[in-house]
Design a protein around this nucleic acid. Sequence first.
RNA 1: GCCCGCGUGGUGGAAUGGUAGACACAGGGGACUUAAAAUCCCUAGGCAGGAAUGCCGUGCCGGUUCGAAUCCGGCCGCGGGUACCA
Length: 853
Amino acid sequence: MSAYDAATIEARWQAAWEKAGTFKAEMSADKPKYYVLEMFPYPSGRIHMGHVRNYTMGDVIARYKLTTGHAVLHPMGFDAFGMPAENAAMKSGGHPKDWTYANINEMVAQMKPLGFGLDWSRMFATCDEEYYGQQQALFLDFLEQGLVYRKNAVVNWDPVDMTVLANEQVIDGKGWRSGAEVERRELTQWFFKISDMADELLTALDGLDDWPAKVRLMQQNWIGKSRGLQFSFERTDGGAPIEVYTTRPDTLMGASFVGLSPDHPIVKEMEGANPELAQVAAAMRKGGTTEEALEKAEKLGFDTGLKVKHPLNPDWELPVWIANFILMDYGTGAIFACPAHDQRDLDFCRKYDLPVIDTFFALDNPKPVETEAFVPARTDKVRWVNHFAGLDMATGQEAIDATIDFAEAQGWGKGKEQYRLRDWGLSRQRYWGCPIPVVYCDTCGVVPEKKENLPIALPYDNGNEEIDFSVPGNPLDRHPTWRNCACPSCGAPARRETDTMDTFVDSSWYYARFTAPRAETPTDMDAAKYWMNVDQYIGGIEHAILHLLYSRFFARGMIKTGHLPESAAEPFNALFTQGMVTHAIYQTKGDDGRPVYHYPEDVDLRDGSGFLSDGTEVEIVPSAKMSKSKNNVVDPLNIIRDFGADTARWFVLSDSPPERDVEWTASGAEAAFKHLTRVYRLATEAAGADTAANDQDEALLREMHKAIRDVTLGVESFGFNAAIAKLYAFTATIQKSKAGSEAKCTALKTLAQLMAPMTPHLSEEAWSILGGEGLIADAPWPQADKAMLVEASITMPIQINGKRRGEMSIAADASKADVEALALTHDVVVKALDGGQPKKLIVVPGRIINVVV
RNA sequence: GCCCGCGUGGUGGAAUGGUAGACACAGGGGACUUAAAAUCCCUAGGCAGGAAUGCCGUGCCGGUUCGAAUCCGGCCGCGGGUACCA
C-alpha cells in the first residue's frame, strides 16, 4: 500500500482538470448560472495565507456549485495600479510596469499549485492597456451622461517635495519623506457625481438581504441622510449673509457664535485686509486632510470681528469665529454653535470664554451645563426652557420638526435633506494609474478625447524620454512629450490631462469585465445578461464602505450608459466578509533602538520563548495581521512543500469561523495533514477489503446521511469550520465501524465528495481508488435521504429552576403532554418537588424541559 | 473624535434565547514496538471531594426572562473604516 504523496496526487489531478476544461466558464442555455468572485488581489509579489484562505473559500463555493448542476464563473485577476509600484521604482529603480508584471507572474505561479478551480483564460490585470482603455471609454460615456464634472478640492501638499501626498504618506501631519509640515492646497479635480445617487444608494440597501447587516449599517451611516434647517444670518456690516445648515435648529436659542470653516469664501475674502486673520487661517490649513486628523486636532478658533443678527431677535448679536473643525465639504461650511448641547462646541466656548445658554433640561434634573454638554437621545423627552415655538415637554426630534415648520411658516429658513456622502474625487497626481482621457485646448477648453484614440496609454521607455521616479511628483507632468497632443475638436496643439484615476475606479467594474474580458467594448451585453450579477462576493471587511459603495455607484452608471442590464444595479447578490490571517511578530532591537523583525522560519520556539540560530532571544508580539513590513508572513509555498496544497486549504478553513481572524500555527497544519493521511489510508484499505454486509451497515449509512445534511448546510452557510468538524467526526465513525466493505466504500466515496470542495486533489484520488466514475469535480453532490435521518428516540435535558439537573430519553414523536407526564416522574423532579406542585412547567419540544419549583 | 465589529478552557474555537466548552491543537496517562516513528485508546474549564456530587464560570457592572455566551443599558480592552493604502 502506497503512502499519501500529496505532491504527486496534486500534480496529477490539476493536469486532469486542465485537460477536461473542468473550470472553463461556458454559458449554457439549460443550466442555472452561478458567479462566484473573490476580491482580486493587489500584486504585491508574494501570496500569503490570507490569500489562500480567501480564495479557498471562494473555491469551495465554486466547486460545490459545479456539482449541483450550475454553469460556474469563477475568475481571477489583479488590481494592479497603485502607489506601491511607484514606491518600488523610487526605492530601487526600475519601472512600475516591469515590477507589477513580474509580481503578477510570480503570484500566478504561486496560486496555480493550490488547485483553485479558476477559469484562468479570463485573467486580466487592471494595468493592461486592454482593460484601462475600456475604462477610459466608460469615463467618456459617464462624462457625456453628466456623471463626471470638475471642481476644486483640497489635497495634502508637501511644501518641500512640492508634491501631493496620499493620506498614508502623511504621518503626524508631516510628509513621510521630507518631514515637512503638510499643507492643505486646492486643486481643480475630476469628480464622479455619486451624490446624485445618494438617496438611491441608501434605499437600495434595504434589498441587500444577503449582505451582512453591519456592512449595510456602515454604508447607511456613511451616506448619512439627515434633515435639518438651512437659513442665513444677516451681517451687521451689510456684507453677504452667512448661510448655515444645522441638524439641530431646535437649539437656536442656545446659539453662542457662528463658525466658519478656514476654507470658507468669507475667510478667504478677508485674508487680504487682515494679516493676523490670514496667518491664523493659514495655520489652520496645515496638517493632513483626513476626517480623523481634523476631528482629533486641537480645537482652534479666531474671532473675525464680524457680527451677525440672531434670526429671531434682531437685537441679539453673535460673533463670527473661524474654527478649524468645520468642514467646507459638509453643508455650507458654516454653522452656529450651541455649546450647552454639543460637547465640541462646549469645549470651544469654554476655551474662548464664549457664553453657554441652556435650552432644555432633563425632566428630573434641571441642572445648568458646566463642563459636560447635555446631549440626550433624540427620542428622549426633555423640558424646554428656552424655545420660541411654544414647546414645553417634547423630544429632540419633535422639537426639530416643530422648529423647521416654524421657520418655514415665518419664511426665514427652509427644511432641507442633506447627505454626508461627498462626490467621489477621482483625480490622482500620479503616474501608475489609468490616464484620464481629456485634453485641454486654448481655444476649445476642456475637450474629451475621441474614443477611436483610446487607449491613451501610459508612456513606457520611449527612447530617451523615459519616465523618471528619482524626483518626487508626477512623471507624466514632467514628461517632455507625452502631454503634447492635438485637440480632438479643432486639431490645434493641446495638452493632455496628466492626472490619472483613483485605483478604486479600476476595481469598481472589474466584476462586469470578467463576464467578457476580451470584448472590444467595456462589456458584452449578452455575456453580462447571462453572468451578472455576482451571486457570491467574498472579501475583506476593510472594503465595507468605499469599494462596495463605489461599485454600486458604477453599476448604476454603467446601466445609464448602456453597459449593463437594468437588473445589475446591485452587482453583488450576496456578500461575505472574511477575517484576516494573523501571525505572531518576532522582533529584536537594532543598534538604533528600532525593532528588527525576523521571519517565523528563522525563529526556534522552545517553551513559549523564541530564539534565533545564534541563540539571541526574540520578543514575541502575540498576534498581528500578516504584513510584509513586519516579516510575520507565512509563505504558503513552505506549507505546500511540506504537506501539500490540500493540507493548506483544509487548515485555513478548519479552525476558525470564516468571518473571524485566524492565527496561523504550524501545529494546526500538521493536524490537518494527519487527517488527510488517515482518509487516504482508509480509502486504500477499504478498496482492498472484502468483508460481508452485516448489521453494522445501516448505522454507518445513517451517519453518512447525517454528515451529508450537516456538511451541505455548512458549505451553503459559510460554516466551513463546522462542516469540517462534522467531517472529522464522520471519518472517526467510518474508521471505527465494523460494517461490510461495500457499505464502507459507499461511506468513503461520500466522504471524498463532501471533502472535495476543500481538498479536491485528495478527494479525486480517493474517488478513483474507490472506483468512482469520472471526476469527482463533476460528480453530482450527494443528497441526504430524509428517511435515514429520522431518530426513534431523543434525549432531553431536564432543568430545575433553569439549571440542568438530569436528562431523560423519550420517543422522538412524543406529545408535549407525554413529555410533561414523564418528566414529572423523573427522580430529580420528584426530589425537587418534595411532594409539592411545580410552580411552572416549560416544555420546548425536542429541546428542553424546565421545572420551576 | 466619529461609524462598525469582536471579547468563551493552556490554545484555535462550538453552541443565534434552551445540556456552555462540539471538533481540533498543546498537555497527562496507556496499548503496540527490542526501541523509536507512525498508529490506536483513555483523560482533560476552575475550586472542594476518595467518590457520588456540589459550588463557581463565556472581558467587567447592572437589567429583561422560567431560562442569557446569545437580548437591552453602561464601562474596559482589541480590531476595521474614516473619502489619496488597497
